[in-house]
């Protein structure tokens, strides 16, 4: 009855395939990934189909209730005070919301990671200065900063992205610096140095690939935060301005009609929740999956298994050595 264990496989290809399989094992994470993919698709292609409908006012149909298909499938989520389809506006808003959140995250990810890795690699004064700046930015409530700045500089999509990105840069700074600092003392970096490799090359070729999984996980979680921030700002009136529409703005606009047309605020908020929760679930799955020391948690059969962290025999039996 001896069990056969897999031989350790080192190739990158097989580890990527294993990642997909690992994802499929966890149906909750898979569901989250599908939801996010769906939202991305809707944001990318949706407005092409319903763009006009979203702006189409139809005063006869104002404040129609949802879940009645008699008005056509477009109004399945109801209409607003001007008769515009909530569903259509939701779809158009998804593009606006994502077009703010994604660039902001990407911007802060790239800038924060590069500076952080550089600071962590070189250590010394560069590191201290960078960390002080990060502390300064972080010690301030981001929403407040955004409100003040946007008020002074007027809210536009670009300003919004910029402000959100700046407030989030310290997150990546810290993570990238910590990992980079830890790695730069490792032997393989010294080895590269003895070959006369330039620092930038070392950072890109050796440090970056190792730090990347953690950074991506952080970015996924940060995406949630940025989305919520943009929604809050739009809600307060300092974010996306009409006639553009974002989910946060829709919630604000529906607020006055809460008693008569609850769906105007409800569905946009629901959209935010669903997207954010999916991103959070995916991020927490990714955190386990990209850390070879923790991956075994995902391979345990369901049930009462895997109670506490397991040492020795179980880990030895489970985890193939992955370099």
């Amino acid at each position: 009855m001896t069990a056969v264990l897999e031989a350790p496989s080192e190739s990158r290809v097989s580890s990527q395939v294993a990642l997909w399989r690992l994802l499929l094992r966890d149906w909750v994470a898979t569901g989250a990934a599908l939801v996010l993919a769906f939202v991305a698709l809707v944001a990318a292609f949706g407005p092409m189909f319903v763009g006009d409908e979203a702006a189409q006012q139809n005063l006869l149909d104002a404040n129609a209730e949802p879940f009645r298909l008699s008005d056509g499938w477009l109004n399945v989520l109801g209409t607003d005070a001007l008769g515009r389809s909530v569903l259509a506006r939701l779809i158009v808003a998804s593009r606006t919301t994502l077009s703010v959140a994604v660039p902001a995250v990407l911007l802060s990810l790239v800038i924060g990671s590069l500076i952080g890795m550089w600071a962590g690699y070189h250590r010394g004064r560069r590191e201290t200065v960078v960390m002080r700046i990060a502390d300064i930015i972080l010690s301030f409530p981001s929403l407040l900063m955004a409100v003040v700045v946007l008020y002074i500089f007027s809210p536009s999509s670009a300003n919004l992205i910029l402000v959100l990105a700046i407030t989030r840069i310290p997150i990546y700074l810290r993570t990238a610096r910590a990992e980079s600092a830890e790695l730069q003392s490792r032997l393989f970096v010294d080895a590269a140095r003895t070959f006369g490799t330039r620092s930038s090359a070392i950072i890109f070729r050796h440090v970056l690939p190792i730090v990347l999984p953690t950074l991506l996980t952080v970015a996924t979680l940060d995406f949630c935060f940025v989305m919520l921030s943009e929604s809050s700002l739009s809600f307060l009136g300092i974010g996306i301005q009409p006639p553009s529409v974002s989910w946060g703005l829709m919630v604000a606009q529906g607020r006055t009609y809460l008693q008569t047309a609850w769906w105007l605020s409800f569905f946009p908020g629901l959209a935010i929740v669903v997207t954010t929760v999916s991103a959070t679930i995916l991020a927490s799955w990714a955190r386990l999956a990209t850390d070879p020391a923790q991956r075994w948690r995902l391979t345990l059969p369901r049930g009462r298994r895997g109670r506490r962290a397991i040492r020795r025999a179980a880990e030895k039996a489970l985890t193939p050595e992955v370099q």
């Binding site: 949630c224 919520l228 929604s231 809050s232 809600f235 946060g248 919630v251 604000a252 605020s265 946009p268 908020g269 935010i272 929740v273 954010t276 929760v277 991103a279 959070t280 679930i281 927490s284």
Partner: peptide, 10 residues
Amino acid sequence: MTAASVPDFW
């Protein structure tokens, strides 16, 4: 996880 993702204003 859900609680950490809910927009407070909503």
